[in-house]
């Protein structure tokens, strides 16, 4: 297995295997980070997350669609420095409605069935992030970039 193939496998496992990600949004010059449950398509091009509309992140997203998410597999042990991997995802978030919402929700709930009640709430928004790039960090400092064409 080449290094590059290995990195692709790690990235795929990370993005489709980890249930949670740190979502960074911004209100003007003020960044804001929150933890969200995520589901990613197999081709890593789209990512879905849900949030109540009364939250700060929803308000931020209404004003600025650019987001960054961090997904990692750290175990909070010292070995994380060499064994953990982290993916920084860059993209544009869009709240889904209608058929697109139904389609996204199906994928999202397949990953997080326990959130069915939460997402069924009229106050819960489902977002789709169109991923433009992913930076994969392994072994503390190895960084690979994956850029997606729109």
């Amino acid at each position: 297995m080449t290094d590059m193939t290995g990195k692709k496998d790690i990235l795929h496992e990370l993005c489709t295997g980890q249930p949670l990600a740190v979502l960074a949004t911004a209100a003007g010059c003020d960044p804001y980070a929150s933890l969200v449950a995520v589901a990613m398509t197999a081709n890593l091009r789209q990512l879905y997350f849900a949030t109540p509309r009364a939250t700060r992140k929803w308000a931020n997203l209404a004003g600025n669609h650019q987001v960054s998410l961090l997904i990692d597999n750290r175990s909070n042990q010292i070995t994380d420095f060499s064994r953990a991997a982290a993916a920084t995802i860059l993209g544009t978030a869009e709240e889904l409605t209608g058929a697109e919402r139904e389609e996204g929700l199906e994928l999202y709930l397949a990953r997080h069935p326990h959130l069915a009640e939460f997402t069924a709430s009229p106050s819960c928004a489902l977002f789709r992030v169109q991923v433009s790039s992913i930076y994969l960090v392994t072994r503390f400092q190895n960084v690979m970039e994956f850029h997606f064409t729109p």
Partner: peptide
């Protein structure tokens, strides 16, 4: 710089 299925891979930092 590798392309596959609309994705381009680029090493950014190597250890």
């Amino acid at each position: 710089n590798r392309r596959s299925a609309g994705a381009r891979l680029q090493a950014r930092q190597l250890v």
